[in-house]
């Protein structure tokens, strides 16, 4: 089972639709209090330890601003 090292949400492009929170099966996100550059409330990564790097949030993000970085495995590749 994979673990996530980091989930990046690009604050330049996020429009705060919260589809990532809706689609996530492991409850990683929660509504945050910071605003993106486009003045929308962004989601916040609350429970990173729950993430299993399924990539659903990355695949469903309509603004392509999510990047899920897995632990170790991807590091070795680089």
């Amino acid at each position: 089972m994979k673990d996530a090292e980091k989930i990046e949400i690009d604050r330049r492009y996020c429009k705060g639709c919260m589809l990532c929170k809706y689609i996530c099966p492991s409850d990683v996100f929660e509504p945050g209090q910071t605003r993106s550059d486009l003045d929308y409330l962004m989601p916040r990564v609350a429970n990173l330890e729950n993430c299993r790097v399924c990539g659903l949030c990355e695949m469903h993000c309509p603004d392509m601003c999510m990047t899920v970085i897995a632990k170790k495995k991807r590091k070795e590749k680089k």
Partner: peptide, 11 residues
């Protein structure tokens, strides 16, 4: 950024 509205399927 995309001109699509928040939550639009086009992205």
């Amino acid at each position: 950024p995309f001109l699509f509205c928040p939550g639009c399927g086009d992205g």
